[in-house]
Structure formats: C-alpha cells, structure tokens
C-alpha cells in the first residue's frame, strides 16, 4: 500500500512538473493551476504513504536501520510543502518551473535507485538530540533547496535581463527583486536550521562516538556551508550585497549541503543513526 502511494505521488509530481513547464511555453494560467494542484495531490499521497508506515514503525525513534532513499523522499515532500506554502503567500508560478523538476530530481533517486540498508547504533535509538538534529537538518535542507531553486531562477533571469534580450523565463517573472528577496529569506531560514542541526549533531556524535566534532568530509562540508551562508548574511546586512552575488553564494551553499548528504550516505555506521527518524516514515 505504501509503495503504491509513493508511486502515485511520484507520478503526480512528474505531471506537476510537466504542467509547469508547459505553462512556461504556453502561459495559460490553467497550466500553472494544474501544476499546483498536481503537486498538492502528490504531497497528500506522499504524506499518506508516510502516515501508513508510521503505524508500523513508529516515529523512527527506536528504529535500528535506515535507507538513504528514505531521506530523499522526505526531503522531496518537504520541498513541495514549502513551495506550496510560499505559493499561497504570493510566490509567482514561475518558481514552480524550477521547484517541481527539483522535487523530481530529489524524489527519483529516492524511489528508483536501490540503496543499501544501514544499521543505527543502539545508544541513539531513544535520543532526543537525534530527533531535533534530524528534524532541523531535513527542514534546513528542504528550505535551502527552495532557496537554491529561486537563486538559480534569479541567475538565469538576470542573465536574460542583462543581455537585453529577455526570454520566456524573464517574461513569466513577476520581478527579479521579489525572487531575490524570497531566495535570501529562505537562505536565512536554511542557515538557522543548519546551525541547530550542527549543534545537535555534535551532541549526537558525542553519544555515538565520543567525539564532539569528528574530522570527516561530511562534517567539513556542513561547516563550510554554514560559514558560507553566515558570510552571505553578513555581506547582505553590512555591505548591502544583493542580486547576483547573493544568488551565487546561496547556490554554492546548497551544493555544499548536498555534499554533506553524499558524505552521509557513505559515512560510518555510527553517524548514520542521525537519520534514524527518517527511517520510520519510509515504506
């Protein structure tokens, strides 16, 4: 049942992405409406698949193994939920053109690429810090993914405006300024979640391995991303940076966070426990 629901959710996301891309070519508002509707339907199915599995595996605390794909699935759902939330607050449908395919890019590997099962160390099975760590890390990544999408959109549109040959992307935009503002705000939220994730992560690490800050690529990328985002916020607030420079920093920041996940999937079993929460909600 859970697998069927996830299959249907994936199909709805794919159809939503297709609708948004069609809207880019043929700007009938009904296409954008269909895109939103399909993403919402996909999210409902996705959440239903999580809910049906929670009944079996609880909230994840106490789980003794996990799969990498589960995390990506949860991320995809959070990205869509975040987009739909922002959409209701006036984000233009053009963001859907970037976010819907991005969701697919996150969801497809989760769903179609087989990932191996990893064990969770026993001391972490009931850790509260682990719960906060996983929640903050997942939310932070989802928010940064949205910021990444908007920043990429900004860079592409700004390029068109600078070239003085505005194309379809620029034509569908509400304004460059609104995309810049929304991308920056999301990046700030991503930074806040990332800070919490790093703080609680060190507690989890101490419980699992005895080291507060283990020297490993994963932690290195997380700290680098954190420092970059901190510098970006500083530059915006103090020096007034905006537009292209901020968008590039957000894109690089998200790429560094993505490397954290690559590191995570190949990390030692002890720290994989940090993702135990995600396990419980995957079929």
């Amino acid at each position: 049942m859970e697998t069927l629901l996830v299959h249907l959710a994936l199909l709805a996301y794919a159809a939503g992405a297709a609708a948004f891309l069609t809207w880019l070519v043929r700007p009938d508002p009904r296409w954008a409406g269909a895109g939103r509707g399909l993403l919402f339907a996909g999210l409902v199915l996705h959440v239903a698949s999580f809910a049906s599995n929670i009944g079996v595996a609880g909230l994840g605390l106490g789980a003794d193994s996990w799969k990498g794909g589960q995390l990506f699935s949860l991320l995809a759902a959070l990205i869509v939920a975040g987009y739909l939330f922002l959409d209701r607050r006036g984000l233009a449908p053009i963001a859907g053109v970037v976010v819907a395919p991005l969701t697919l890019a996150v969801m497809v590997p989760a769903h179609l690429v087989a990932t191996s099962e990893h064990a969770v160390v026993q001391p972490l099975w009931t850790s509260g810090a682990l719960f906060v760590h996983v929640a903050a890390a997942t939310l932070g990544t989802a928010v940064l993914a949205l910021a990444f999408g908007l920043s990429a959109l900004y860079l592409a549109s700004e390029r068109q405006a600078k070239s003085r040959r505005p194309g379809r992307l620029f034509a569908r935009l509400t304004s460059l300024e609104s995309i810049d503002r929304a991308g920056y705000r999301l990046a700030v939220w991503g930074f806040i979640f990332l800070s919490v994730a790093i703080g609680t992560g060190s507690l989890v690490s101490k419980a699992a391995t005895g080291a507060v800050l283990p020297i490993a690529p994963k932690e290195g990328f997380a700290l680098l991303a954190w420092a970059l985002l901190a510098a970006m916020i500083q530059a915006r607030l103090v020096a007034g940076w905006r537009g292209r420079r901020i968008a590039i920093l957000v894109v690089v920041g998200f790429v560094l966070v993505a490397f954290v996940y690559v590191g995570l999937l190949s990390a030692s079993p002890s720290l994989r426990g940090a993702l135990a929460l995600a396990i419980g909600v995957w079929p």
């Binding site: 700007p27 009938d28 508002p29 009904r30 034509a171």
Partner: peptide, 27 residues
C-alpha cells in the same frame, strides 16, 4: 486573452520601458 499570448508583452517603446521597470524592480 487568457489562453494565448496575444495580449502579452508591451509593444510601444514607452510601455516596454515601463514593463521592464516593473519586471526588474517589482512594485
């Protein structure tokens, strides 16, 4: 008007300038 792009994009120079200002700067 809604199903085609026949009414999209300004066609006089002054309205193109105004349109671009809105696209670049927002409100």
């Amino acid at each position: 008007r809604t199903e085609t792009e026949i009414a999209r994009g300004a066609v006089s120079l002054s309205s193109v300038a105004a349109d671009l200002a809105r696209k670049l700067l927002g409100d």
